[in-house]
């Protein structure tokens, strides 16, 4: 069932990271998990990977409210990275925000596959998996 190689969590909330990692393992979602505490860290790493000719993670779980570089800023920068598998990357926004303005913004980014309201559960992961492998 394991179709996904690497997924990535970009979130500043340690508890969320712990929980997500845990359910990823539970549902056997992917081989490898990359974790970044803000958009900037993730961007830096992705650039490094690209320079090394390596692929980017195929699924990104992105939080919106973060210090230094938030989710929206990250997306702005991320789309500019020229990586081979760039097109295959799927972004899921995972946020506590119920602000309709955030939901509206989602439509502006093709790369965003879905907006998932926290709490993030194993059921969510399973349906993602179904979507991706379909």
């Amino acid at each position: 069932m394991k179709k996904i190689n690497t997924s990535c969590i970009i979130d500043d909330d340690d508890i969320f990271i712990y929980g997500t990692k845990r359910i990823i393992k539970e549902v056997n979602f992917c081989e490898e998990i990359l974790v970044f505490n803000n958009g900037q860290d993730a961007l830096d790493e992705f650039k490094k990977l690209t320079d090394l000719g390596k692929e980017l993670p195929s699924i990104i779980f992105l939080d919106l409210n973060m210090p230094i570089m938030n989710g929206w800023e990250f997306l702005e920068q991320f789309t500019k990275i020229e990586n081979n598998n760039q097109d295959k990357v799927i972004v899921y926004i995972i946020s506590s925000s119920v602000d309709p303005r955030d939901l509206e913004k989602v439509g502006n980014y093709e790369i965003i596959h879905n907006y998932i309201l926290k709490p993030f559960s194993s059921k969510d992961l399973e349906s993602i998996l179904k979507d991706v492998t379909a």
Binding site: D13, S96, V98, D99, K118, P119
Partner: peptide, 9 residues
């Protein structure tokens, strides 16, 4: 948002 972050955690 803030309250939800904690409560969902």
């Amino acid at each position: 948002h803030n309250l939800r972050s904690h409560s969902t955690n």
